[in-house]
């Protein structure tokens, strides 16, 4: 599955960059986020629960940040397993300063899902993935734009 999108965030590019480099803040917006193990500055192991139709699975992901070019570009790869299912993802994010207080974020993600989730939930997968992605970026933007960046709102678990 291929996803891409852009959104404008009412914040300076440096604020946005700081945000996306804080794994806890990123994770806080991940739908179904449960726990996170930080293995290094660019290596994380979050646990995320997702449900597609009747199939629920908890994925343990291995996330690595690669190809970082402050403050405009970052890429990451993630691979994870759940019982009978597996996911692989590669995502890039590009930031551009539209003004001192407005940043455009463009992102692209390629996701491969295998196993039970893909075969049993095939029909619902694309729609669910779009919904979860939209939710993630929406939460992300809201948190950055929130008056107190220290108290981010939580994305509802799914």
């Amino acid at each position: 599955m291929h996803f891409e999108g852009t959104q404008q965030i009412n914040a300076p590019i440096t604020t946005v960059w700081r945000y996306i480099n804080d794994p806890d803040k990123v994770a806080a917006c991940a739908p179904g986020f449960k726990t996170m193990e930080i293995l290094g500055p660019d290596h994380f192991k979050p646990t995320i629960a997702v449900g597609i139709g009747a199939v629920k699975a908890t994925f343990t992901l291995d996330v690595r940040r690669i190809d970082v070019n402050e403050p405009t570009h970052a890429a990451m790869t993630a691979r994870g397993n759940a019982a009978g299912s597996a996911v692989e993802m590669r995502a890039t994010m590009d930031l551009a300063a539209d003004s001192d207080s407005l940043t455009t974020m463009a992102w692209v993600a390629d996701v491969n899902i295998s196993g039970t989730i893909a075969s049993v939930g095939a029909r619902l997968m694309e729609g669910t993935a779009h919904k979860l992605t939209a939710k993630f970026f929406d939460c992300f933007r809201q948190n950055i734009e929130a008056p107190s960046a220290e108290e981010p709102s939580q994305a509802p678990a799914t």
């Binding site: 295998s114 075969s119 095939a122």
Partner: peptide, 14 residues
């Protein structure tokens, strides 16, 4: 099957 070898009809809904 999709290109990754995922069966597309793994239940009786499909």
């Amino acid at each position: 099957y999709d290109e990754n070898g995922n069966i597309q009809q793994g239940n009786l809904m499909e």
